[in-house]
């Protein structure tokens, strides 16, 4: 089920608001059919998450076709025009370089880059964010970007838990408990759910979960007794957190700010008037600018 500012919208209303591709429709259907309540402040916030998820799947495909290579942390490499390669295999954004350009360079000059599968997932999330956020906002948010597995992800507000439903754009993990210790880079594979029954894993390409398991099983130690398996948690960026940065206008241009314990959304006066009573009941609202 989906609620918007506390009310249950019709499917038609959501579709008419801007659902376009079949994959967007699939995501919406899973949410609508779920026994879990997906609560959003506005339809825009819902559409933002759906489009972000589609963007993650597109960024996965684009990464594959960019020509980037798979490598463990000892053999990581990057374009020195945009990144410092640190001794631990991390890529540190060079001072003065816009983060959005550095991320796009990975896709433009793929063969100059090589990295591990967890780093690939972070790159995919950043690339999807480049597509979803205004460049200035992205470059401010991620000015000190470092790419190294999941360790430096604060600005994406990564959520990692067992979700009520698995949705396209989720990142899952196939664990290989009996990996050959000479190739620990195959201890598991982070994979993006592409929404069509296939998944993308950096180094293994596009496969079903069964295909991923089969590929990892080939990289087990001799005498292994345990098969690789899909773990229950899913990983995704903080969509509602990132949504607040998705507006092209500056905050000062907005009429209304909504606060829960923190800023949760910014609305136009029209959006505010439409759901005024529910918003006044559920949020602290602050008007700024000269509009009344």
């Amino acid at each position: 089920m989906i609620t918007i500012a506390g009310s249950i919208p019709s499917k038609e209303a959501i579709v008419n608001a801007g659902i376009q591709s079949p994959l967007e429709q699939t995501i919406l259907d899973i949410m609508l059919m779920s026994s879990y309540t997906y609560a959003y402040r506005s339809i825009d916030a819902l559409l933002f998450e759906i489009r972000f998820r589609v963007s993650i799947t597109n960024s996965s495909r684009d990464l594959y076709y960019s020509g980037v290579q798979f490598a463990d942390f000892y053999r990581s490499r990057c374009n020195p025009m945009f990144w410092h390669l640190l001794p631990d295999g991390a890529f540190q954004l060079k001072a003065g370089v816009p983060a959005s350009e550095a991320i796009l360079d990975i896709y433009r000059n793929g063969p100059m880059y090589a990295f591990e599968c967890a780093t690939a997932m972070i790159i995919i999330l950043y690339h999807a964010a480049v597509k979803m956020l205004p460049p200035q906002k992205f470059n401010t948010l991620f000015a000190n970007m470092r790419l190294w597995g999941w360790k430096f992800d604060q600005d994406l507000q990564i959520v990692h838990n067992i979700p009520p439903d698995y949705l396209p754009g989720d990142i899952r993990y196939v664990k290989n408990p009996d990996v050959n210790p000479l190739t620990p880079e195959w201890q598991g594979e982070n994979v993006v759910d592409l929404g069509d029954g296939t998944f993308f894993g950096h180094g293994l390409g596009f496969r079903t979960i069964g295909g991923m398991i089969e590929a990892l099983a080939m990289r087990r130690r001799p005498g292994a007794t345990r098969m690789p398996y899909l773990m229950l948690p899913a990983t995704r960026p903080g969509f509602s957190y990132l949504y607040q940065y998705s507006f092209n206008r500056d905050v000062s241009d907005h009429s209304i700010l909504l606060f829960d314990n923190e800023l949760v959304s910014t609305l136009t006066l029209e959006e505010y008037e439409k759901d005024r009573s529910a918003l006044l009941k559920n949020f602290i609202t602050v008007r700024i600018g000269d509009s009344i």
Binding site: E116, C117, H160, N190, T235
Partner: peptide, 10 residues
């Protein structure tokens, strides 16, 4: 617990 830095920062 079979988690690792490949799966999570935690």
């Amino acid at each position: 617990n079979e988690n690792s830095y490949e799966l999570t920062a935690e």
